[in-house]
Simulated assay, not measured.
Amino acid sequence: MAKSILVIQILCLLLFNADKFATADAHETTSLFVKRDEYKNDLTRIIRRVEDLESSNDVIKSENRKLQDEVTSLKTFISSLDAENRRTVSDLQSQISDLQVANKQNEQIIQSIVSTLQSDIKENTSNFPSQTYALQSENKDTLVDIASQTNWTQSAPQYEQLHESQRKGYPVTNISASGFKTGQTQKRLTGHKGYRITRAENEANIAFYATVGNHHIEHAGVNQNIIFDHVITNLGNAYNKYAGDFKAPVSGTYVFSVTLMAYNTQSTHYRIAKNGTVMGNLYLHGKDGSDATSAMTAVLQLQQGDDVSIQNLDADKNLHGYAYSTFSGFLLQQDYSSTAIVGK
């Protein structure tokens, strides 16, 4: 458009000077022709410049359209990023909230465990002096009965030495009264003429009984101990309700019993393990409409410190709780070949 207007203006200028060509003399005519040629050259240069400018303008317009398209794309991308960021922030806030709830629950569980441990420690500490006094009194009464019922005439130092040996947990083996056997004491029964034969070393009273509490055990792993967390009896405190295992305080023969109930229709394998080695297997075959049970009794010879537990053998299994699954055991016969006793 600008090019056309410029050409029209130059043509009007030439027509305006046409009258001068008609009235001019030869010299003026020559001068006018020179100016005309200069005008024409100027016009040519101007036209080329205008063409260059129009070409540049077209390029600028094309680049401007591209830039506008890129700006539109960037706006769309930024909008999608904003939406994604909002979703991410929302997810993070939800996860933080879940973690805070889980952390609060874990703190409550830890506080409960600490409170239970403190209560157990307090109870054991408070019972220890009375148990020690009762044990010493019983040992003293036994020795008095030995002396009075068998006409035993040993000197006072020998009596004190015997009492000290028994108090420390060593078997009494040097009494030669009639009817006595090595490692045994004799005591008259109240209101009877007969005698009761008791083991001098058999002071360890060890027995426990525990159940799975008011919950089910879910998603148990392979070789995982079953935690019987509701302890009803724990004489000797040899059963650990947090680890689900029993550690023998003294060497001897122990009897263990376990009863398990299947969770709904799940079929699962379990074992009674001594130091991680299988001593017997149980199988629960769950059925529709009924919860199957399986039970076992095992008599095991244990050394002091041996570990006995009930372990799950299959991955991701459940077990019925609410006192339907139980674990118990007791010391049947102490082994006197070793005089070491835990806690003495």
Results as ranks from 00 to 15, higher is better:
W152A: 11
S119C: 03
N237P: 03
T339A: 08
Q161C: 02
I217R: 04
T23C: 05
D307H: 07
K104L: 08
E164S: 15
E70L: 10
T326P: 01
S73Q: 14
N205M: 06
Y322P: 03
Q186H: 10
T44Y: 11
I146G: 05
T72D: 12
F246L: 04
T233H: 06
I10K: 07
N275S: 01
Q266K: 03
D316Q: 07
A22G: 03
Y322R: 07
E160G: 11
I110M: 09
N214P: 06
H269L: 00
V101K: 10
I78Q: 08
V7H: 11
E54V: 04
I341T: 14
T116R: 09
Y133H: 12
S290F: 07
R167D: 13
I113D: 09
Q118R: 08
L15R: 14
L260E: 01
Q224H: 01
M279Q: 14
V7A: 14
I121P: 04
S94F: 06
V231P: 00
S62I: 06
E84H: 13
N17I: 08
D335T: 05
D42W: 14
T153R: 11
D82A: 13
Q333L: 12
T259W: 03
Q334A: 06
Y159C: 07
G179I: 03
S148A: 13
Y170K: 08
H230A: 15
L117P: 10
T88G: 05
S155G: 06
Q333D: 10
L117K: 04
P249K: 00
S176E: 09
D42I: 11
N85C: 11
S328H: 01
L135M: 12
I272L: 04
L332R: 03
R199D: 15
L74M: 14
T190S: 15
A207V: 02
H216S: 10
E138L: 14
R167M: 12
R188I: 03
A295Q: 10
L14Q: 11
Q149I: 10
S115W: 04
G169N: 03
T265M: 07
V342A: 10
L332M: 13
H219Y: 12
I197R: 05
V212Q: 02
L143G: 00
R196E: 07
T30F: 09
E84I: 13
C12V: 11
S90E: 11
T150C: 14
E218M: 09
F21A: 06
S337I: 02
S257W: 04
N240K: 01
A18F: 09
R167F: 08
Y242H: 09
D288K: 14
T182P: 05
S90D: 09
D307E: 12
A177W: 00
I109C: 06
